[in-house]
Simulated scan of single mutants.
Amino acid sequence: MEENFFGTASSTTAKNVYLHQEASSEFEKFGEGFQLGPYNTRHLLSDPRRIGFMIARHKFVAKMLHGYNNVLEIGCQEGLGSIVVSQEVNHVVATDFYKPHIESCLSRLTGIVSNIEFRGHDIIDAPIPENFDGAFSMDVIEHIEPAQEDRFMTNVVASLSEHGVLVLGAPSLESQQYASAASKVGHINCKSGEDMRAFCNRFFHKVFMFGMNDEVVHTGYLPMAHYLIALCVYPKKELAEQ
């Protein structure tokens, strides 16, 4: 035992905790550890707080969709948020229109997380009509051309069941004065809180707005929120049928 540890003062009980974890078959499939994709690795090394913010957003999604059977993710990127949500729902269909992201997810996560199915798909092209009871899309709508946002939402509605729920998240319009130059180039469709609410109300019967600053989700004054989350309930299915 002692050859595995530095020093001699710590108790045998403390050391056995580490030896038990290492010997557990539950951890064998991870090998040397879980590998992040290149995008998230860059953020972890350059600004690790961004990883914390992203995980906090997806934790909120996971709690809102707790116990849901079949959940659609639109814009899964490298799958880190997908893993967070997968711990609270039965099945996640995680989609992205960027091929390297899906290829990265398939190469790193196949056989590790059993209840996530990664698919390449552009929601602007078409819905995924599998009657999902929940959906989420974090950090996507701000990258969509305003002329295409209705099509985005109509196809999301067409992918949901009659009583489906969507969690939609994006940086607020007010936050953009603090955004980096690189972010501003891609953030072509940020909204204020009330504009986000009005947009979502066109496609859902009920919309509940939340603000977020760093890792904290709140119901405070939306113009002071750095990030917006809309919890959208009961899709207006007639819009998808037109």
Rank of each mutant, 00 (worst) to 15 (best):
I144P: 03
C190N: 08
G164K: 07
K191H: 08
G120V: 14
C190I: 08
P127M: 12
N115F: 02
H121M: 07
P127G: 11
F132D: 04
E145H: 15
S172I: 12
I116F: 00
I141T: 07
S107T: 11
S172C: 09
A179M: 06
G111D: 11
R108T: 14
E145Q: 10
A181G: 09
E194A: 11
L166Y: 02
E194K: 13
I141E: 04
L168T: 02
V156C: 02
F136E: 00
P100K: 06
A181F: 04
E103R: 11
F152N: 03
I112V: 14
E194L: 13
V157H: 01
E162T: 12
H163E: 11
D122C: 07
G169A: 04
T110W: 10
Q148Y: 09
L106S: 10
C105S: 01
L160G: 00
D150S: 12
E149A: 06
N131S: 11
S161W: 00
S183W: 01
A147D: 07
N155W: 06
S159N: 07
H101Q: 06
N115G: 06
I144D: 07
I124N: 13
I116D: 00
F136D: 00
Y98W: 15
V167N: 01
A147H: 03
Q176G: 10
L168W: 00
R151D: 08
G120N: 11
E130V: 09
M196L: 15
A182C: 06
V113I: 12
E162P: 05
V185F: 05
D139P: 00
G120L: 14
F132T: 05
S114N: 13
M153C: 05
E145T: 08
D122K: 10
P171K: 03
S107Y: 10
G169V: 02
V185M: 06
N131G: 15
Y98H: 14
E174Y: 10
D122A: 13
S107W: 14
L166I: 05
H101K: 06
K191G: 01
N131K: 11
F118C: 01
A147I: 07
G193V: 08
P129F: 10
G169D: 02
I116E: 00
S183N: 06
D133W: 01
I141A: 12
P146I: 03
L173Q: 13
K99V: 13
R151K: 14
I124L: 12
